[in-house]
């Protein structure tokens, strides 16, 4: 897989989707026959409040090119604050990735309500585009660090300074 180039590969994306909103939105997108990248593997979770940083790390460790958590719109969490907790956790994971040597853009948090099928499609497209821009996860391909001071030394960072993570 080492010869996989940026941009022309089919990324593997793991999505942790809340049962009450985003998972339903993904379902709805299917029912509506909306077209979107087949790159995403959805994991159903009872609430994004169930998420833990380690789950995001493990997904990347096992080869995912990008991971995201998708929860309810602000104020709509079935368990009141689960989505806020998950959203607050993600910046910490981004920081860990920077320290590890991975691009923090590989993880993200989104709000997608049950009725927002189109939004779900956009989110998957966004993460797929990001993964294509970043290239395959170096943990999978055996590459060196792609972020931080070591990245430049090893030449792992090819397209200049990274865009700062968006939320």
């Amino acid at each position: 897989m080492n010869d996989v180039k940026k941009g022309d590969f089919e990324p593997k994306i793991v999505a942790f989707a809340c049962e009450y909103c985003s998972y339903t939105a993904a379902d709805l997108a299917g029912s509506m026959r909306l077209q979107y990248p087949a790159s995403v593997r959805i994991i159903l979770i009872p609430c994004t409040g169930r998420m833990d940083a380690i789950m995001l790390l493990k997904a990347l460790d096992e080869g995912a090119d990008a991971v995201f958590v998708s929860g309810c719109q602000p104020g709509d969490c079935h368990f009141l604050r689960g989505n806020y907790r998950a959203k607050a956790m993600v910046p910490g994971v981004k920081k860990m990735l920077e320290e590890i040597g991975l691009d923090p853009d590989r993880v993200e948090f989104f709000h997608v309500a049950a009725s927002e099928a189109q939004r779900w499609v956009e989110v998957v497209e966004e993460m797929t585009a990001r993964a294509r821009r970043l290239g395959p996860n170096p943990l999978r391909t055996g590459g060196g660090p792609e972020y931080g001071p070591l990245a430049e030394k090893k030449g792992g960072k090819e397209d200049g300074p990274r865009r700062q993570a968006s939320a």
Partner: peptide
């Protein structure tokens, strides 16, 4: 225990990237 899991995971990933 939770932070042990996290650090171990971080170390494994960092080690892979750094040979």
């Amino acid at each position: 225990e939770k932070e042990v899991g996290m650090l171990a995971s971080e170390l494994k990933m960092a080690a892979k990237l750094r040979d």
